[in-house]
């Protein structure tokens, strides 16, 4: 009896210490965001005022929205956000279409040279964009696409990972389904559109989510390809703001960082199951 109580208190203490530790780590993760976001609601005069740790480290003394107002008035932020969403959506939907078409062909159609082409496509995955960026830029210039949205969209409409991902899914679909459809006189186009695409809804959604997140984060490509201010994307605009060509406007910078975090955070909290589970299974972003 006594020993039982002993182990019970022991496990209670263990649990308590565990929670203390988990909360401590959670604070390490959350505090930088809280700090930067709270700074976005301070007037510029207050930034840097509370150097010593106090309540006001995380809570503004004077709460203001002026930074957000200035961000939209002076920076053309609405345009920048529209650009970012537009490019991200174009790549997401375009690549979903092309990658699933290609994945279907590799999974279900027998054509000459299929294996070789598949291997060539997949081997392109060893060439990260960081390596390819210089010659890709020259290609974009040769095609007359520099400083266009097309330069941000076209190269990403097909990807080795996306093709592989869709092929893997389509390979799991039982063949009897399309055999029955072929007997009914359906061609590949109809089998693809009427049977495979509806079946792949979840996979398409997951892939789309991953592509969208990747596009939202994309930096080296837009910073290289786009010089025109009116076509700038969010991450590049934020970096320029932080480097302060004139003088860093900290208030606007903090507001901008908040603006880049919040939509993704909302997306993540809604779809965290899809995102986390798929990262766990595919191990790829």
């Amino acid at each position: 009896m006594n020993a039982n109580i002993g182990t019970r208190t022991k496990s209670m203490i263990f649990k308590f210490l565990m929670y203390v530790f988990l909360i401590f780590v959670a604070l390490l993760v959350v505090i930088p965001f809280v700090w930067v976001m709270s700074n976005g609601f301070r007037p510029n005069a207050e930034i840097g005022k509370f150097v010593d740790f106090s309540w006001h480290t995380f809570f503004p003394q004077t709460f203001t929205l002026i930074n957000y107002v200035r961000m939209f008035e002076q920076l053309n932020m609405l345009r920048i956000i529209t650009n970012t969403f537009m490019v991200a959506f174009a790549v997401t939907f375009g690549s979903l279409f092309i990658n699933s078409l290609t994945g279907y062909a590799f999974a279900r159609i027998d054509f000459k040279g299929k294996k070789t082409i598949f291997i060539i496509f997949l081997s392109m995955a060893v060439l990260p964009i960081e390596i390819l960026i210089i010659s890709l830029y020259l290609t974009i210039v040769d095609l007359g696409l520099s400083n266009t949205y097309a330069s941000l969209i076209l190269p990403f409409l097909a990807s080795p990972f996306g093709i592989f991902f869709m092929r893997q899914f389509f390979s799991t679909v039982p063949k009897e389904l399309d055999e029955a459809a072929i007997l009914d006189g359906c061609g590949h186009y109809r089998i693809f559109a009427k049977i495979y695409i509806p079946l792949a809804k979840t996979s398409l959604f997951t892939l789309g989510l991953l592509v969208f997140l990747q596009q939202w984060d994309s930096f080296i490509v837009p910073v290289t390809f786009i010089g025109d201010e009116s076509k700038m994307l969010l991450q590049v605009a934020l970096t320029r703001l932080s480097m302060g060509l004139y003088m860093t406007d900290y208030g606007v910078l903090y507001a901008g960082v908040t603006l880049s975090i919040v939509p993704i955070l909302i997306l993540f909290l809604i779809f965290q199951k899809n995102i986390v589970e798929n990262i766990a299974t595919t191990g790829l972003k």
Partner: peptide
């Protein structure tokens, strides 16, 4: 069947050819 296959992979073939293989050779 082969023709069908190539029609399905044509867009990806173009993109990967122009924006992956071609810059790789260029590099």
């Amino acid at each position: 069947e082969s023709i069908n296959g190539y029609i399905f992979i044509l867009p990806a073939l173009l993109i990967i050819g122009v924006f992956f293989i071609n810059p790789a050779i260029k590099l």
